[in-house]
Design a protein around this nucleic acid. Structure first.
Length: 802
DNA sequence: AGCACGCCGACT
DNA sequence: GTCGGCGTGCTC
């Protein structure tokens, strides 16, 4: 038998399957989707079996060396999906296949030096090997040059050789468990022969007499207040045996979840869920766009839809944006579906993710709640896929394979003939446009449950404040309102989309601006450490107190970040308890949850944060939401700037007054008349959609046109320009005259990490040649891509134009 | 990617 | 005459 294997060598020349002979003893064992280890050009690499065949046309096949899995890690469906994905995202097949598995399953290669004939080695070389016949290559590299030379010769002579060992990164957590080494009758006899002084030993054995089962050692010792030494005595006497047992890490172990029952749906919810349920009933592949204002009860619709899927014996995938994978959402799923749920998000360690993935693989769960990559959950009988907050940019992966979870979800829903639900209070223009063309089935939830009204939104013109002499970052009305809420023991959420203290520092005498030495971007001042940081490459240096250029001491800090807001707020209201949430305060594991639960327990009056506090949070006592600078995003050079601003303002405002108390929102802006700010404050999605669509049409942007962005980067500017120009002119030649090819132009950030960056953008409607043109461009530069430091990134349907 | 092969300059 | 630098090409 022949196995077709995709090897773990990410390169365009090796981007295909290779045939290998399956050793006779494994012919009935090796299956599609398993990982194997194969010899490949004088070394061993890992690969995926993607097909099995009787015969091969290739002479002199090599044999599969080892198998890695006892059962396939990729289903037939996922293999097909991987091939589709590698085409859609223009990446190597192996890259696509690996993206579908938890990182823990990615092969790790360890090079070693093996001793073949000890008697041929001189003493000083033999001494390097102690008991083992292998030395890690990392150790070999450190040896003195003289010794290396000898080793080189010995390798040539065949006395030693280089080998690669391949390992998973799976580390299983084990615990010690203990059980009787004999039957009940013998156990009884042993108890009788114990000396009267061995009171604790007797207690332990009596426990086993009653329970007669394996138990974690620690648990047993805790229960009986015994110590390890007592247990050890019994193990030594071979009355009990102790073993290591692999256990799952359960990130949510400590939390206990009360089971909840489905809530009664309002009439509006009922109307929205009906078509979904009938689609589940008839196993129809339909895509629903669930457009529901914040607080309209979308989650309950998800839960009940999934319930109906489970009742049919099928599985469900629910995607949520990374940032909103707060305990709140997880809790609602765990409460409803108990241990049927696996949770996958980036806050978990590689081992924890692997364990959650294993639960799916072993069919121990029926529901997955997770971020983007959870769309690859290895279910085989999917009855529904849900993407909550479908407009979120975190569904687009910004590295290879550059896929959008929505596209993968559509593919899988077609494969399984099941409904796909896209939910959002502010759908992406692409999705809403499809619903207008009846490609998607639109369901609207226009009212909040319990008919709370939408919060009152007030726009404050900050230019006016400035004119009236208020130079603070807070408007007078915002300060007044915060104080009012504090007096009433209610809570506030303040939002600012910028971390750090100041966005840039400038010398007032000579105009010097501190910039990153590796990127063309100004450095952000972080006050707590008194450093300047680059938010793109991580560069950090001490902040100067004199201008490095002219020596002046007049250095001023411009722009406002969360740190500065926190400081100003403390000055104005020393009594307020502020919880700040941004990348800098949540980098440690679990910090996110800790800060949120502190706020939920009212250990804080004001929650101040960036992006990450905009979504999904639901705190009953929050009655004021303040947006400190609504225009920060509006001024970005991105065609989605208005859409993002509208979405963010709507999401943030949705945090206020979700329960009994009426909410208020204050939006500070320097562009108060901009339609995205005006329409967000009026909660008017439809008008925003229509206005924005006109702008998109006028400028030939999605959803009227598809986009593909090509970014060329290299340490030398001339090289970048030359390559970008060649690519652009080639595309202009090869594409139809209906395609718009723009560029080459310097990227918004012209240099990152010492690499210059140029871009070319393609706008098109129907361009069957595009795929081949792009592929041949990649092929043309392939040998330059690796060694000369040239990088070409092709992103179809980009979310980040930077 | 990474390893072998092969071709040309520097050296015992 | 050999050793070792790196460009080139192939991997079932």
């Amino acid at each position: 038998m022949i196995a077709k294997v995709i090897v773990d060598v990410a390169n365009s020349k090796t981007d295909r399957s290779y045939d290998y002979l399956i050793p006779d003893e494994w012919t009935s064992f090796i299956e599609k989707g398993m990982r194997v280890i194969v010899p490949f050009n004088n070394r061993n690499v890992q690969g995926f079996v993607v097909d099995l065949e009787e015969h091969s046309t290739v002479p002199n096949l090599k044999k599969i060396k080892k198998f890695v899995d006892m059962s396939p890690v990729l289903t037939g469906e996922l293999l097909d999906l991987g091939f589709w994905l590698s085409e859609a995202a223009l990446c190597f097949k192996i890259t696509a296949l690996q993206a579908m598995l938890p990182v823990a399953l990615k092969a790790r290669y360890k090079k070693q030096l093996e001793r073949v004939q000890a008697d041929m080695l001189p003493k000083e070389v033999n001494d390097l090997f102690q008991k083992n016949d292998l030395i890690d290559w990392d150790e070999v590299i450190k040896l003195p040059a003289g010794l290396l030379k000898q080793i080189q010769k010995l390798i040539k002579a065949g006395a030693m050789k280089m080998v690669t060992e391949i390992k998973d990164r799976t580390t299983s957590k084990t615990i010690k468990v203990v059980k009787p080494a004999m039957g009940k009758n013998d156990l009884l006899k042993e108890i009788e022969t114990l000396t009267p002084r061995a009171k604790k030993q007797k207690e332990i054995l009596e426990w086993f007499l009653v329970h007669f089962a394996e138990i974690p050692s620690n648990e047993l010792l805790m229960k009986l207040h015994a110590t390890r030494s007592t247990l050890k005595a019994l193990i030594n006497k071979q009355i009990l045996v102790e073993n290591d047992r692999k256990i799952y890490r359960d990130p949510y172990e400590a939390a206990s979840f009360k089971q909840t029952e489905p809530l009664a749906l309002t009439d509006i919810q009922q109307k929205a869920i009906q078509p979904i349920l009938s689609s589940v009933e008839n196993s129809e592949q339909e895509i629903f766009l669930l457009h529901g204002v914040t607080g309209s009860g979308k989650t309950e619709i998800y839960l009940q839809s999934i319930q109906s899927v489970l009742e049919k014996g099928k599985e469900a995938i629910m995607l949520v944006p990374e940032i909103s994978l707060t305990p709140q959402i997880v809790q609602r799923f765990k409460e409803r579906f108990g241990s049927d749920v696996a949770v996958l998000h980036s806050g978990l360690s590689a081992g924890e993710k692997y364990d959650e993935w294993l639960k799916i693989h072993r069919k121990e769960v029926k529901v997955v709640v997770g971020a983007r990559s959870a769309i690859f959950a290895p279910f085989e009988n999917i009855g529904m896929i849900i993407i909550d907050e479908e407009h979120e940019s975190s569904y687009k992966q910004e590295e290879n394979p550059r896929y959008h979870a929505r596209d993968v979800a559509e593919w899988r829903s077609k494969y399984h003939q099941c409904p796909l639900i896209l939910g959002s209070a502010t759908p992406s223009l692409e999705s809403y446009a499809r619903s207008q063309k009846n490609v998607y089935h639109l369901s609207e939830l226009t009212e909040r449950i319990h008919s709370q009204s939408m919060p009152e939104v007030m726009i404050v013109d900050m230019r006016e404040e400035l004119r009236e002499g208020n130079r603070s970052i807070f408007s007078r009305i915002l300060i007044e309102k915060i104080k009012e809420k504090l007096d009433r023991k209610e809570q506030c959420v303040l939002f600012l989309n910028r971390r750090g203290y100041s966005t840039f520092i400038m010398c007032r005498d000579c105009g010097y601006v501190a910039e990153c030495p590796h990127c063309d971007i100004s450095l952000t001042y972080h006050k707590n450490k008194n450093t300047l940081k680059c938010h793109y490459c991580g560069f950090e240096e001490m902040a100067p107190n004199r201008c490095p250029d002219c020596g002046s001491q007049h250095i001023r800090f411009f722009g406002t970040g969360t740190q500065k807001v926190e400081e100003e707020l403390t000055k104005l209201m020393p009594e307020a308890r502020i919880i700040r949430m941004d990348v800098d305060t949540t980098s440690r594991k679990g910090a996110h949850e800790k800060l949120l639960s502190a706020f939920a327990n009212k250990q804080g009056d004001i929650l101040l944060g960036t992006q990450m506090i905009a979504k999904g949070l639901d705190f009953p006592d929050v009655t004021l939401v303040g947006v400190i600078a609504a225009d920060t995003m509006l001024n970005l050079p991105d065609f989605r700037a208005a859409e993002r601003t509208f979405q963010l303002l709507t999401q943030v405002s949705g945090r206020a007054g979700r329960h009994k108390l009426q909410g208020e929102v204050i939006v500070q802006s320097y562009n108060p008349e901009h339609y995205s700010i005006q329409l967000a404050s009026g909660h008017n999605y439809t008008s925003f959609y229509l206005t924005e669509m006109k702008a998109r049409k006028a400028h030939a942007y999605p959803p009227y046109y598809y986009l593909t962005l090509i970014t060329v980067s290299h340490p030398e500017l001339m090289k970048v320009i030359a390559v970008a120009e060649k690519i652009t002119s080639r595309l202009k030649k090869e594409l139809s005259n209906k395609a718009i090819v723009l560029g080459p132009a310097a990227s918004v950030i012209p240099r990152i990490k010492d690499r210059y960056r140029y871009q070319c953008m393609i706008k098109y409607k129907n361009e069957p040649n595009l795929f081949h043109a792009l592929k041949s461009i990649l092929n043309q530069y392939e040998n330059e891509l690796g060694n000369s430091g040239l990088q070409i990134v092709i992103d179809s349907n980009p979310y980040m134009l930077m």
